[in-house]
Design a binder for these strands. Structure first.
Length: 509
DNA sequence: TTCCGACAGTGGGGTCGCAAT
DNA sequence: ATTGCGACCCCACTATCGGAA
């Protein structure tokens, strides 16, 4: 198939908001693909090339764009683009950057202008068609005439939408239904909704397992005999980075198992270390001094038996039997008071909060349903707007991303009574608020660059955060974690804003 | 007819390895 | 030795569509 055809479908999808129309357009093009083109094309349409990391980002694209003029005629094939991605992904070592730019420029020169834009978006993982996994799933079902539920289950259990599409469209009878759990192949992890308090969460779930929520990285551990593999939330294989997790899995009194859990760094007294330290160790190829400890909270398969469709009550019992000291702390209860107590205990032990899980729920791979509900405390502070950046996409033309400052009464970072930047946020803003602040900040403008408008420090905004962390990015040495706008505080003056000292007191350790 | 679940989009913080400078 | 890039951990929240109630 010509790439042009994919690009036209992508553009048509971007032009409509109707998900049914997007799905219909996708289904039509899926049907026309040769079997060998299905996996590459699905990857492209989702902005996730099947090759995984291709090594091309904004910068590489800019360098290449400068060198290339668009082709007049659409001659590129989907398969050719796939081969180009293959070559790009294979580049490494000295000279690879130059070679990558050369390959990209060559590719660019063979593409028409719409194709160039499409390729760039695919490589950036930002296709902007309004049709990602959810719509693609519907489209695969529509194109193949298979029930959505069957397609969804195959996709979740294989973690691979492209391969699922290929099976649905070209596989043998029953091939989709046959997709099941395989020890060694990662499954999309189940996700959690959120609630303000543990009591609220239990009110929603009914009887629940109320478990500590740890501030680390999600892991999925597969063991078949002595063979162990460890995957991230996004199904990347990180076995070689986590030898201590591999060792822990080998200790368990089982032959085959798939476990869901979290890993994080602890100090000498088993208190959790800051997330940054976990990440430092997690991201490193070589062994480091920090040890990462696994905690398991679910078991999806055990010695030949799939457990994902069993109620959590049973899975939890099996986990307790096999995971021993690696089992997550928690309690089963329907009592909001007890849920609140477990939550307080988790926080007192230095953890993030709790996850409340309906005790009779199955393991809904890849879904963010209401069966699992996370609860974390939110801290709020009044900060001062120092500026805002122009938004992107549907926020184009609006000042969106706020620069936030804490008061600096002592003048540690400038004039006494000034403000020191501690983070940014674009979250929590409604369309009405975006319109309002774009206008208001214009009146308060003190200077501007291409990306941002800086304002006199006169506006106070209440910001919700999960906490603060050490930062080398900001002068105050700290940054806000998961900052979001709660509301503007017209009733407060900048002189009443929270100080850098107040925020600093939140730093762990 | 209204309600609500699921999705997509809009970006935030940090860490690492690697190639280029 | 330092810097910039790309990949990938963690993530909250709003708007919208379309099926459920």
């Amino acid at each position: 198939m010509l790439l042009e055809e994919l690009v036209e479908v992508a553009d048509a999808m971007a032009a409509t908001r109707s998900r049914l129309a997007k799905s219909a357009a996708l289904a039509a093009v899926l049907r026309r693909l040769d079997e060998s083109e299905v996996v590459p094309a699905v990857g492209m349409l989702l902005g996730r090339p099947r090759q995984g990391r291709v090594g091309v980002g904004w910068r590489s694209l800019q360098s290449a764009a400068a060198a290339a003029e668009a082709s007049e005629r659409a001659t590129l094939e989907v398969a050719e683009l796939d081969r180009a991605f293959e070559r790009l992904a294979g580049l490494e070592g000295a000279g690879s950057t130059g070679e990558r730019t050369r390959l990209l420029a060559e590719l660019s020169a063979r593409a028409t202008e719409p194709e160039q834009r499409f390729i760039a978006r695919v490589l950036l993982g930002d296709v902007r068609t309004g049709a990602l996994e959810g719509v693609m799933l519907e489209a695969i079902a529509e194109a193949s005439g298979r029930p959505v539920a069957v397609v969804r289950r195959a996709a979740m259990l294989s973690g691979d939408l492209g391969e699922t599409a290929r099976l649905a469209l070209h596989g043998d009878e029953g091939a989709l239904e046959a997709v099941g759990l395989v020890v060694g192949r990662p499954v999309l992890p189940m996700l959690a909704a959120s609630a303000p308090t543990a009591a609220d969460a239990v009110a929603g779930t009914g009887e629940a397992s109320v478990e500590y929520k740890l501030d680390g990285a999600r892991i999925q551990v597969h063991r078949a005999g002595d063979e162990v593999r460890v995957f991230t939330r996004n199904l990347a294989d990180i076995t070689h980075r986590l030898p201590e997790v591999v060792a822990a899995a080998r200790e368990l009194p089982v032959r085959d198992v798939i476990l869901d859990g979290e890993t994080l760094a602890l100090d000498e007294s088993d208190a959790p270390r800051p997330f940054q330290e976990t990440m430092s160790r997690f991201g490193a190829e070589a062994a480091r001094e920090t040890v990462l400890r696994p905690w398991f909270f679910d078991v999806l398969h055990l010695d030949g038996r799939d457990l994902i469709d069993e109620p959590l009550r049973l899975r939890r019992a099996e986990l307790a039997r096999i995971a021993g000291r690696y089992a997550i702390p928690g309690e089963v209860t329907a009592d909001p008071e007890i849920a609140e107590r477990v939550s307080r205990e988790a926080l007192a032990a230095g953890h993030e909060g709790v996850v409340v899980k309906a005790i009779d729920s199955a393991y809904a791979a890849g879904r963010r349903g209401s069966s699992w509900v996370k609860v974390k405390p939110v801290y709020t502070y009044d900060l001062v707007v120092l500026g805002a950046e122009w938004g992107y996409g549907r926020r184009t033309g609006f000042l969106s991303n706020l620069h936030l400052g804490a008061r600096d009464p002592e003048g540690e970072f400038g004039e006494p009574g000034g403000f020191v930047m501690v983070g940014k946020t674009f979250k929590g803003l409604t369309d009405a608020l975006l319109r309002w602040q774009t206008e208001r900040f214009g009146e308060l403008e003190s200077s501007r660059t291409e990306q941002a408008v800086f304002v006199r420090p006169e506006i106070v905004v209440e910001i919700g955060i999960d906490g603060v962390q050490r930062s080398s990015r900001y002068p105050g040495g700290l940054a806000l974690r998961f900052a979001r706008v709660k509301r503007y505080r017209d009733d407060k003056s900048p002189a009443e804003a929270d100080t850098i000292q107040t925020l600093r007191a939140l730093l762990p350790g």
